[in-house]
Design a protein around this nucleic acid. Structure first.
Lengths: 351, 351
DNA sequence: GTGAAAGCGCTAACAC
DNA sequence: GTGTTAGCGCTTTCAC
């Protein structure tokens, strides 16, 4: 590999001159057109590629960001990452992958950031405990952080998530417009740390109350998302069976995730109930499968790609602002209701 | 950030001594326990973290691998990445993300590898054209490459994919054991470049023939996988409707992907056919949704994580072997049939 | 066993 | 405008 010295020699100039023409954008130094020509030609002829590693050492900026993922939910993670990468690449940054289903890295994330001079990291749904421990230390170490979709983030942690409450409201009001009044909810596991689900459930309760349907509020708990399908389903299924049994069953069920909604739908079929004729079901996420299943799922779409892109924007702002950046913000991405075929008019039933 | 010099000063030794104790594993030089003690204490007290960037510059090895993804199919990509990362981390390597849905990087992949001293890259389903162009140049540049699941890889490209033929055989023989004889196939788009689908279809044909069912061979084409559900479904759906119409319809349908199978199943429901009572359906992939839909999908599981891990192993072997590595291999990962509820005994019907 | 010194490839303050 | 020089943080050869 040709180095900058080789280029300098070939062009008959000094190394710094070469560096200047290479960094034309970042420097005030002006190089004459003739020299620049010769340098560029030499670069071309030698197939020279600048060593970004060395560059990062001298400048102290690696232009690498970390992407830290715990508990991978495959599709959302991939989509957030895709959105983040697109935005980062546009700005000349790249991602180094950290974590990904690892309970923890062998050396801590902070060590890793320091060793690799990472400017900052995006952490996607880190568990509460990991975050409580980590964030103050990162702050102290001067490493920027933006969290996506964590469980119970502390109030001062820069944080991006969907507007769960708004999403839930969209789903509920959609059902209400279709005439549903008896609407129940199937939520994530009742685990206190699971705030994403909690937020949605809280919204369910308050929207129901606001529409004078407080008496119909009914929440049961399944699993939040599924890694190993086996056991997880049964919890959700049990919740669904419980709610769907008997004549006073709900006419609509809002679920806190597409996974949950799929299981609820399946359970309904298995119980001889038709969706949406007998019971309408809504999901939350709008994963790929939502469009494919039968009936195609009415669900609240999250903009995973959008969250990724926004996270990068916030992260880079933070980095540019230096370590004494302004007060960190928590932001909510708008959700969008996607109406498909799993919801329909409320059946007329004796109550 | 403390540097190695700070540590040296504090421990009262030279910088090289510090470097030696830090690299105890890689060097033959032995340091006395006393000195090592003092150095380690200094490291501790100063909270010293070695600058891996600088280290990479001097050694010329970045211990970073590239993960290049085109045309993201979210879940498979995420799972391959997870498997690859686990393996890489165990060996002290990390991934820098390249591509991800970008049609191409602004600077070419090769430039990027050279600039960042990447030891090698994993490319997941790169399009045929990209690969044809790229591989020889990478070879020339001395950058190792392992391809996962490409369309039509050249024979000399190190390549890992599922044993599609074996997987298709598993699905077919499962149906045959259940008494099915009239088994049709729904494949990816008839696009010539789509060899993954082609391999499965070819296997379908040959297994059918081998069992004396050549007369029942029937292939129709939908979309291979779905990014934007809207239009894609209709193709698959049309194929399914065509096959399922009339009394001489197949009793079993093998699909080349879970996506396809979901659509076929849905179409069957919509046509008033029951799955599996009237028609059995198999998928291919075993994505998360396969366990959640109704009925839960019998499908051929691919070990995405396994492919990722194996790719890393092969890549690192290649890297260790130097640029004149042995003949590159193409490997097949075993598949595993997961029997769920979308398949059942063939219905007795007048033929 | 330890240190001095040269080097990795690049940037940037300073001179001319 | 361009070159000289020092420096980024680390590794590694070579003496002692």
């Amino acid at each position: 590999m040709a180095t900058i010295s080789d280029v300098a020699a070939r062009a008959g100039v000094s190394r710094s001159t070469v560096s200047y023409v290479l960094n034309a954008a970042n420097t005030t130094v002006r190089i004459s057109d003739g020299t620049r020509q010769r340098v560029m030609e030499a670069v071309e002829e030698l197939g020279f590629r600048r060593n970004e590693l060395a560059r990062a050492v001298t400048t102290g900026k690696s232009r690498m960001l970390g992407f830290w993922v715990m508990q991978s939910r495959a599709e959302p993670v991939a989509r957030v990452l895709a959105g983040a990468m697109k935005e980062a690449n546009d700005r000349g940054y790249f991602f180094k992958m950290l974590g990904m289903d690892e309970k923890r890295l062998d050396r801590s994330v902070i060590d890793h950031c320091q060793e690799w001079q990472l400017s900052g990291i995006i952490a996607i749904h880190p568990p509460h405990l990991a975050l409580v421990d980590l964030y103050p230390r990162m702050r102290e170490a001067g490493i920027s952080l933006v969290v996506i979709d964590s469980q119970c983030p502390q109030k001062d942690t820069p944080y991006i998530a969907s507007d769960h409450a708004e999403g839930m409201r969209q789903a509920l009001e959609h059902l209400m417009e279709l005439g549903h009044r008896r609407i129940s909810c199937i939520a994530g596991r009742p685990d206190a740390s699971d705030c994403i689900s909690c937020e949605r459930v809280a919204a369910y309760r308050s929207v129901m109350k606001a529409h004078g349907l407080g008496d119909h509020v009914s929440v049961d708990y399944g699993h939040w998302f599924v890694e190993e399908p086996g056991s997880s389903q049964s919890l959700c299924e049990r919740a669904a069976r419980k709610q769907l049994a008997g004549p006073s069953r709900p006419t609509g069920i809002v679920c806190v995730s597409d996974h949950t909604a799929m299981i609820v739908t399946r359970t309904a079929w298995e119980m001889g109930l038709r969706v949406p004729e007998d019971v309408s079901v809504t999901g939350f996420d709008n994963l790929g499968m939502a469009a494919l299943c039968y009936p195609p799922l009415t669900t609240v779409a999250q903009s995973f790609e959008g969250m990724g892109a926004l996270a990068v924007e916030r992260l880079l702002n933070q980095i540019d602002a230096g370590r004494n950046s302004g007060p960190s913000v928590q932001e909510r991405m708008p959700t969008r209701l996607v109406v498909r075929a799993s919801t329909g008019p409320a059946p007329k039933r004796a109550e």
